[in-house]
């Protein structure tokens, strides 16, 4: 009898305890739910398109119009440098990555709040939601990158000095960093807002302000002799956008040091994010 008990003890598939190991990410379980991630992506995608006439074109119109507005407004401000590049192209390249970052961050920051209905009824690894959100956002970005590509062709045809170079191979890595950064910060905010909702209001507002300490509408070099320079460099998104611009235009600041800094920030935030998120998912349904 005693032996049988010992034997069966080793075969528990789930053990639920009041306290659990913070570093237990349970990635194998996440992998088992990969079909769920896929379904979430399909859902997000269809929900956007159903009953629209223009469909995916909406993804393109929004950044196109924003870029035009900025280009028109800042045309009258000669101090705003674009490092000799056409303003349209310069702004668009920065805005695409930044918009993805900010939208994904905000969406992820609502994870617990929006999904509390489902989360309260059935268990599945909650991490599937931020992952699916992040991936389905990439789809929109893909269309927007096509737009950027067409715009580049247009300006090259009209004689712009675009110098696509070898650093372009870094692009998938840059994209991954943007995904990780926005998802992680979003998850942290989402976890903290289950208890105090205040942060939710701060995020929408904060992300708008954050754009101005990121070289989206100006190059990093613009502030090279200002106290703002170090603040902008502390922002992990700065190096990513600067590197992206460098790989398209061949101008701007591209240093390995800054990129490594952004990577370290991204991965540390990811680990912190998952820990806080996992801790929150255990009990948040009681307090949300």
């Amino acid at each position: 009898m005693a032996i049988m008990k010992d034997k069966s003890k080793q075969k528990w598939s789930i053990i639920i305890r009041s306290k659990s190991n913070l570093l237990d990410f349970n990635l194998s379980e996440l992998w088992r739910y990969k079909d769920l991630i896929r379904m979430f992506i399909i859902r997000d995608f269809t929900a956007v398109y159903k009953q629209t006439i223009l469909g995916p074109i909406w993804y393109i119109l929004q950044p196109l119009l924003t870029t035009i507005v900025y280009a028109v407004i800042f045309k009258g401000v000669p101090q705003m440098s674009s490092e000799g590049q056409p303003k349209m192209l310069f702004y668009m390249s920065g805005l695409l990555l930044w918009n993805y970052f900010s939208i994904n961050l905000i969406k992820n920051s609502e994870t617990f709040y929006i999904n509390s209905g489902i989360f309260g009824k059935v268990y599945f690894p909650r991490l599937t939601v931020p992952i699916a959100t992040t991936i389905s956002g990439l789809l929109a970005l893909f269309f927007q990158l096509l737009l950027l590509f067409v715009t580049i062709l247009y300006y090259v045809y009209h004689g712009a000095k675009v110098q696509l170079n070898y650093t372009l191979i870094l692009f998938p890595y840059l994209l991954m960093l943007v995904c990780i950064l926005s998802m992680s910060i979003g998850m942290i905010v989402s976890s903290l807002t289950t208890k105090y909702r205040d942060l939710k209001h701060l995020v929408g507002f904060g992300i708008q302000l954050a754009m101005w300490v990121t070289p989206v509408l100006y190059p990093l070099s613009q502030f090279s002799d200002s106290w703002l320079f170090s603040i902008i460099r502390m922002n992990p998104m700065s190096a990513i956008i600067e590197t992206f611009r460098y790989s398209i235009f061949g101008t701007g600041t591209f240093t390995m040091y800054d990129l490594v800094y952004s990577s370290i920030m991204a991965f540390s935030l990811l680990i912190v994010g998952i820990i806080i998120f996992n801790k929150t998912e255990k009990n948040f349904i009681d307090i949300i």
Partner: peptide, 30 residues
């Protein structure tokens, strides 16, 4: 596993599914 106990532990062997509601996650557009 929707919420964790304050004390104690639960051990489960085998695949488990819980139906506290039918149609969880149904999306009207799908």
């Amino acid at each position: 596993r929707i919420t964790n106990p304050t004390e104690g532990e639960i051990k489960i062997k085998g695949r488990m599914v819980s139906l506290l509601e039918v149609g969880t996650g149904f999306h009207p557009e799908l």
